[in-house]
C-alpha cells in the first residue's frame, strides 16, 4: 500500500486538513470524533480490515504515517 493512496482516502474524508504534513491530528484537536470515525469507515472499506475501538488512540491517528502503520499491521494480523 502506498502513501498516496491513503492520502487520497483521507482527503476525501476532509480536504481542509493537511494530512501530508500534520503530525498532531489528535493532539491539536484537528480531527474530532466524527472525523475519526469517518476515517475508520473509509479505511475499513478500502483495505478490508476491521479497526477495533482499542486502536483509536492518538499514536495511531496523529499522522498519515501512523495511520499507514496501523493499517499495515492490521492487514497482517
Amino acid at each position: 500500500m502506498i502513501m498516496d493512496e491513503l492520502l487520497e482516502i483521507l482527503q476525501d474524508v476532509n480536504d481542509d486538513v493537511d494530512f501530508e504534513n500534520c503530525e498532531t491530528l489528535i493532539d491539536d484537536g484537528i480531527l474530532d470524533s466524527f472525523a475519526i470515525l469517518q476515517i475508520i469507515a473509509a479505511l475499513s472499506e478500502n483495505y478490508d480490515i476491521s479497526i477495533p475501538a482499542a486502536e483509536i488512540i492518538p499514536e495511531n491517528f496523529n499522522s498519515a504515517k501512523a495511520l499507514l502503520k496501523m493499517v499495515e499491521r492490521l492487514q497482517n494480523e
Binding site: 470524533s33 470515525l37 475508520i40 469507515a41 475499513s44 476491521s50 479497526i51 477495533p52 475501538a53 483509536i56
Partner: peptide
Amino acid sequence: RRWHITLGAWMKKYIFYPFAVTKPVMNIG
C-alpha cells in the same frame, strides 16, 4: 466538548467508539 469534559471523554472512549465501530453500525453507512 466544553461541558463535563471528563465524562464526555469516558463516554467517547468506552461507549461511543466501541458502538460506532461495530459491524452493524458501519454497515449502515
